[in-house]
Amino acid sequence: MEKLKHHVINRDEPVISIKNLYKSFDNLHVLKGVDFVLHEGENVAVLGKSGTGKSVLIKIIVGLLKPDNGEVFALGKQVDKLSRKELDQLRLQIGFSFQSSALYDGMNIYQNLAFPLVMNRMGLSKKEIGVAVENIADAVGLKSKLKQMPSDLSGGQRKRIGIARTLILNPKIMLYDEPTAGLDPITSSEIIKLINDVQHQFNTSSIIITHDLTCAKNTSDRIAMLYEGRFVKVGTFQDVFDDDNQVLKDFYNYNFTQE
């Protein structure tokens, strides 16, 4: 697989900073004191089994869920303390790619891509929106699909359009929720290449939620292993999986014996 990781990381500038984060759903304690920093220009893969709170973590970052306790700063703003208007301003700078792609069923691909621009009334003319949509569709290699409906696309194509829809707002941070889940190895490698391309073209900082070690290894500068609501190990791929921790060993062995 082509590896494109040559990220310029500015360690003085944390774009996301999480301190002592807790989140529970009734009796289910999902996050139990998470601390985390994402630097400018950096890609971090958050690994962990299903149900360990990986998606909950990025939903809290983007303000979809409220933390029970702790502080979450994104681009210098404390997310849970923002008003609706301030939160919307922040969200324009954070792209969120959903596991299910979350394309709007009732709209064609062009309308899906244009939706964030049209709704946020950025003072663009119809022609300018058209050009932006075509450019972003071209960037993900799906310019020919603009008139089709989401149901006409394959899983991989839907993921690409989902990523393109978030990129159209030119975000500073990208949050990917299981970008390769449910995809075949070839399509997965295309998505991995796309994540790296996005990093280079749009100069984003990214958190990639995944349980796919191939994806994590090829897209991220650091790996953060979430287990039972806490990060048990954070470091480069080599550091994390050279560790003697049994949880990490089990995760590594399971992933590569499955493949």
Partner: peptide, 13 residues
């Protein structure tokens, strides 16, 4: 299918 959440994160109410 998280389409409502997708609107929310696109800064659309």
């Amino acid at each position: 299918t998280e389409q409502i959440d997708a609107m929310e994160v696109s800064a659309v109410n």
